[in-house]
């Protein structure tokens, strides 16, 4: 833990101002990720800008019938919000698959999007890690990589993004609203997180001095045929080995629209428009789902310990799509897999 200054932002403009004034400042919301990283000396902000009391806690209808969710809405409140439960149950389910009740109570929407990888080397300052200390090398590539990425990796980093919520948001075509001194902008969630490339220390496309103010969901929520399935090393309270968000629009047994996103396999939620397109107009059968899985997993490559993820992901995709098609979504309370 380093020594740091602390300021409480009185409004969004104030937060932006405080961030801009100090390039080593960091926003803090629920603190459930940032404080852990500070304790391990991975993050060493010169200043914490506390945004937890900013009025970004509303969930409101947008003009086009979607929802706008404030960046500080706690994960629990979001998961149990009636609009989310009824219209976007895929999102509710993904959130409830993550962390523990206590953490979800503290965690914010913005913080969840910004949470950093759980790669063990990233957390241990005694080991090389390009994400933590650019240029030192990646310890995971030839080291312990059982839980590392199989898609979109680079020779600099094979870390995964650990967020469950983001996987559902990607599938739902959510957009991220961002504010900074130069005004406001919005970016599709699927473009929010980056692939590691040769700059793995940059997780997202959020610029310095920018703050997430809200997430926007389009009107379509796929409330009939959806499922979020998370496979992990114990039945709750563990990060995903593989997670799948699936949503279908069905006409009888024929697929209209399909959404399919993987978590736990890449540096960002992994979605393939090609795989989704291949499902359109097809019957909802295991064979077609298997084909979509193959497309989604195209280019998957394993290291010494994470090869199992490729087959596991393939099977999980088929299963999750079947759950969605049968309208028997995976329950997050009962751990038996539907």
């Amino acid at each position: 833990m380093n020594n740091f200054q602390y300021s409480r932002a009185s409004n969004v403009a104030d937060a932006i101002q405080l961030l801009a004034a100090d390039p080593d400042a960091k926003l803090i919301a629920g603190g459930t990720n940032l404080i852990d990283l500070m304790k391990e000396n991975v993050e060493r902000p010169s200043r914490l800008v506390d945004i937890s009391r900013l009025p970004l806690r509303d969930i409101e209808q947008t003009a086009d019938g979607g929802l706008r969710i404030g960046a500080l809405v706690p994960n629990s409140d979001l998961a149990y919000h009636p609009q989310i439960e009824q219209r976007y149950p895929l999102l509710a389910s993904a959130i409830l698959a993550g962390a523990s009740a206590q953490l979800r109570n503290m965690a914010s929407v913005g913080g969840n999007l910004m949470q950093r990888t759980r790669c063990a080397y990233f957390y241990d300052t005694a080991t090389p890690c390009n994400k933590r200390s650019p240029g030192t090398g990646c310890s995971a590539i030839d080291g312990l990589n059982r839980n590392h990425a199989i898609l979109g990796t680079s020779s600099s980093c094979i870390a995964t993004n650990p967020s469950d919520m983001s996987v559902a948001l990607a599938a739902l075509d959510a957009r991220v609203h961002i504010a900074s001194r130069s005004g406001e902008r919005a970016v599709a969630l699927i473009d929010f997180h980056r692939l590691p490339g040769d700059r793995p220390h940059i997780d997202t496309n959020l610029g310095s001095g920018e703050i997430i103010t809200a997430i926007e969901l389009p009107p379509r929520g796929f409330a009939q045929n959806y499922s979020y399935l998370k496979i992990r090393d114990r039945l709750s309270y563990a990060f995903a080995l593989v997670a799948v968000a699936a949503a279908l629009d069905l006409e009888g047994n024929v697929i209209g629209e399909a959404r399919l996103t993987l978590g736990g396999v890449a540096h960002k939620p992994w979605r393939s428009l090609e795989a989704e397109a291949a499902l359109r107009g097809q019957a909802a059968t295991p064979d077609h789902f298997g084909r979509a899985a193959d497309l989604l997993l195209q280019g998957a490559a394993a290291r010494a310990h994470n090869g199992f993820k490729i087959e596991l992901a393939r099977r999980a995709v088929v299963r999750t799509l079947m759950q969605a098609a049968r309208a028997t979504p995976q329950s997050q309370a009962h751990k038996k897999i539907a």
């Binding site: 080991t127 080291g143 090393d233 563990a238």
Partner: peptide
Amino acid sequence: HEETVMDHRFGRIMNADIAEYHIPVNAD
């Protein structure tokens, strides 16, 4: 669940916390 994982290149335990060193939770 339980396993202390070491990277033998460093001789360091790499899951030295109870988020990553798994024990059963209620669901198990």
